[in-house]
Amino acid sequence: MAPILKVVNVTKYFGGVRALEDVSLDVEKRAMVGLIGPNGSGKTTLFNVITGFYPPDRGEVYFKGRRIDGLNPNEIFKLGLVRTFQNPRLFFNMSVWENMLVIPQDQKGESLLKAPFTRLWLNEEMEIAKKASSLLKDFGLKDFVINKVSDLSGAHIKLLESARGLMGKGEMFLLDEPAAGVAHTDAHKIFSFIRRLRDEYGLTFFIIEHRIEVLMDYVEYVYVLHNGRLLSQGTPEEVMRDPKVIHAYIGE
């Protein structure tokens, strides 16, 4: 099976600073793949390049066989590639409900001419609302619909970020440190929830985490970045045993 995401020889410099150098990797459909590396190793930058934040200096990115480097972030989202941020970026002063409803693409009511006439977009709106309400139930957020996002707890915000991603046609998720600043036990909860999502919705996950240990039980394959280069890759066990990785982490 062809990989759903394919990164080929991506290089990215910021001024003189090397953020990524010749990074190539594949992610299979319905897989859960980890991306680990010490702080500042270029993990977030790789996500930024994949999702169209920065064009790569060199190299190519393919999603579902289509070349996506050079596309704008919104176009990439529409293809089904959803990302989350290290610091969650939701619409904090809007309600949870609106945060869900706003996501679907090209709603009829977003047109300037149709927007004032409720009749023209009522049906679509109700369908979206039904989808949102069932997703919120699945994610255990049903009780917070009318709350502002800024009133939610950290864990709920993380949940909402994923739920929101599913409102679109998300097939693959790039999660930037979904368990950042969370204790080990809670991190395990989050990762098992992600695995459940993968199984239930048939999604693909590519997950950044800078602690190796917590991720190991959940992913099938791991890439290790170090100073912008791919240091090692393989199953979690292989990577854990790789002396280069051990060295990089102890050297840190």
Binding site: G52, F53, Y54, P55, G70, N72, P73, N74
Partner: peptide
């Protein structure tokens, strides 16, 4: 915004 207009994008490529 990390956004590139189509026309400019074509010119820059």
């Amino acid at each position: 915004l990390p956004y590139r207009f189509k026309v400019l994008r074509r010119l820059m490529r």
